[in-house]
Design a protein around this nucleic acid. Sequence first.
DNA 1: TCAAGATACGTGCATATACACTTATAATAG
DNA 2: CTATTATAAGTGTATATGCACGTATCTTGA
Lengths: 152, 152
Amino acid sequence: MVKQKYRALGMQDNPKNVCACLAIRKAARAVTQFYDSYLQSFGLKPTQHSLLLAAYFADGITISDLAHFMVMDRTTLTRNLKPLEKDGLLIVNPEQDRRAKKIVITRKGVTLLKKMTPAWESAQQELNRRIGSTKFGQVLEDMSYIVDAIYW
Amino acid sequence: MVKQKYRALGMQDNPKNVCACLAIRKAARAVTQFYDSYLQSFGLKPTQHSLLLAAYFADGITISDLAHFMVMDRTTLTRNLKPLEKDGLLIVNPEQDRRAKKIVITRKGVTLLKKMTPAWESAQQELNRRIGSTKFGQVLEDMSYIVDAIYW
DNA sequence: TCAAGATACGTGCATATACACTTATAATAG
DNA sequence: CTATTATAAGTGTATATGCACGTATCTTGA
């Protein structure tokens, strides 16, 4: 087993010496794959589901503002919106300020989002069950705390 | 401010209803960008630094085994190794089992890794300082726990 | 008013990520 | 001993990520 053979990859007995960047990226990959297994039958990846959700709750938000909320480079968001636009789930429209563009969810987007909600809830609840409700809540808080700690 | 205007993106007052996948991916992006600001002058991204570190501590590990440790698709790892190979930091060699390949760090790779260590430590310590030692340790544990909860 | 700076966005480039499919090699069952 | 199955890896395709750079528009100061 990998765990036995390459324990050294943990590097130190002191877990504080494990690279936090590596640790969180590994967990992010695992969680993404987990949620994807629940959402994939709807044709949306977890990232796309999150974007569509944002377009629903913050209808009319600009690209820059959403990028800021997503802790994502603006140019990344511009490209991530493309597949959703292509599928007619949302539209990117000009603003009054002609430099800016606002993101608007379509009826098709809303319908898909609502259809996906039970699957998303299943993923969320199953992960909650597996790691325990207390830890689950703590991790959600900590993730938000980390983002704030880095950018403020 | 985005925070004020689009509070709805948090969706609910109950933080448990925040998507865990979104939360951890946001944090992963933030942490990656943070570490990148410390490592970029050496020409390696955080992911590449982690891979090189793995090649150092688990010298001779196969692609599949390292992919498993990294919680990464094997084909992703294959491609992620390319830039490091191109820069002569590691070599991918055939095994006795001719299906497999082992990853071997080069002297150049070791040298670079050691040169980067103080910068990596600065990032690690500064993040530790910003979120507090207790929470820092807890998050590292939790990330590992989540990976185990998903794959076991 | 209008030139300088600030803001919002897009493109080129390189890397990161994973699934579906294919190829090559090893192990095993009959 | 061979046919089947299992394992290790690579490629094609599509999306995800961010930096450097450029364009268009708005704001502001002289």
